[in-house]
Write a protein that binds this DNA or RNA. Structure first.
Lengths: 229, 229
DNA sequence: GATGCTATTGAGTGTGCGACCAATAAGCAA
DNA sequence: TTGCTTATTGGTCGCACACTCAATAGCATC
């Protein structure tokens, strides 16, 4: 039964193979951690030999940085899409917090924590972390700026407010590997939302998850609950 | 010249040797990171053979946890001493932020980041991190509670306020390995102090570092700047 | 000064890692 | 079909790690 050990070589285009390798490494990074990205581990994932990974990434550190960038970058696109088609900044920010506070986000928190520590030793990763930090900050700042322009938010400095929100999120993310699995206090869990509402001059509760999400991905409709100023 | 390789054995009492090992490991943890605590590295530090470290710590993970606990525990004693002899809570809190915002604190930030990530893989360390988290939170909460009792602070829930401050400190600590060596914005660097002043009902600037510290360790005198609500 | 306890050594085991390289075969082009 | 390019393999090397254990020697006690 050769299905378990198919010696048959499958030859792919360099671009496809490289993308495959990065995707597999990103998956390992999200589920097991960046230090589990080894030539052998990724090769096993793809059913190839370790030497092949070395061929595409002569320095293993570069694969680690690339995998981190892929995982965190795609999460950012889902969390804070570059083009917000029609929906109000307030609703987008609420969606952001809904996702960033759920348990599904724990893997991302772990990855940030992982990367920020590991970048102490790996220059390539450190550089990538800097790039992603800027990307996340810029994306959130743009959202806040739009909200200010639309009259929904009120803040003196959108950049500082964005950083402030991200700092609180990071601070809570630090606890993701804790014994109790995070904080049990709901007031602590709500800290990022509370910070945003305070700094943006929003009434308490504005950014909480809506109980009944409007018909999934309705493209054009204006949110009925949008409250301006 | 036997000074470079002194084969002479030096036999010490188990308690003394064990303390020596933990101290050396803690030093490595602070300067190089917890994953650099290896049997060989610690043995070299002390001029002994790796087997000796194994003898005192049959499981290396236990040494890592112990070293972390020693480093972070002693830092806590210096940062928030259990017995605050005479000085006001306000002054103590200002001292806390003065130290916790300086560059000298970077090693501690790195260690927290390091431990919180590594505790993902090492149960013994995870438990120790939980213990230290509680200790730090309790110590800060006690300080805040004293301040409230003395009429210096105003907050609904000292525990929540303590957690809030620590979360912001942790969030900034996440950036300690960053490319630029932290945030350049002074408003961001002041975030923990601003959070504390806001949550404790203190005038802006109350918790900033005093330019001229009162004569070092004057024991009894009441602070002349103590303001009671 | 002799004796016994045990702290300490030295040597060795097995594992997993990144990196290197000649040999091989897959798949495209002629 | 034939030939060529190169993606892929298989094997190997050196290194660092935790852990084990019998042998050794420091030191307190008598």
């Amino acid at each position: 039964m050769p299905s378990s050990v198919p010696n048959k070589r499958i030859r792919k285009s360099p671009a496809a193979r490289r993308a495959e390798i990065v995707a597999a490494a990103a998956s390992v990074a999200l589920t097991e951690g960046l230090e589990c990205i080894t030539l052998r581990r990724v090769a096993d994932e793809l059913g190839v030999r370790p030497g092949l990974i070395s061929h595409y990434f002569p320095a293993a550190d570069d694969l680690v940085a690339e995998a981190y960038g892929a995982a965190v970058g795609s999460e950012l696109d889902e969390l804070l899409p570059a083009d917000r088609c029609g929906a109000t900044p307030t609703r987008h920010l609420a969606r952001f917090f809904a996702r960033a506070s759920g348990e599904a986000y724990d893997d991302i928190s772990r990855l940030w924590l992982n990367a920020r520590h590991l970048s102490r030793y790996r220059p390539a990763l450190r550089e990538r972390v800097g790039v992603q930090e800027n990307a996340w900050r810029d994306r959130l700042e743009a959202l806040i700026r739009d909200g200010v322009d639309a009259g929904e938010f009120r803040t003196g400095d959108p950049l500082v407010t964005a950083v402030q929100i991200l700092v609180v999120l990071d601070g809570l993310g630090m606890l993701v590997n804790g014994a109790d699995g995070g904080e049990d206090l709901p007031v602590v869990r709500r800290l990022p939302i509370a910070t945003a509402e305070r700094e943006l001059g929003l009434p308490v509760g504005t950014l909480d998850a809506v109980p009944a999400p409007v018909r999934a991905d309705a493209p054009g409709g204006r949110s009925p609950s949008g409250r301006t100023g």
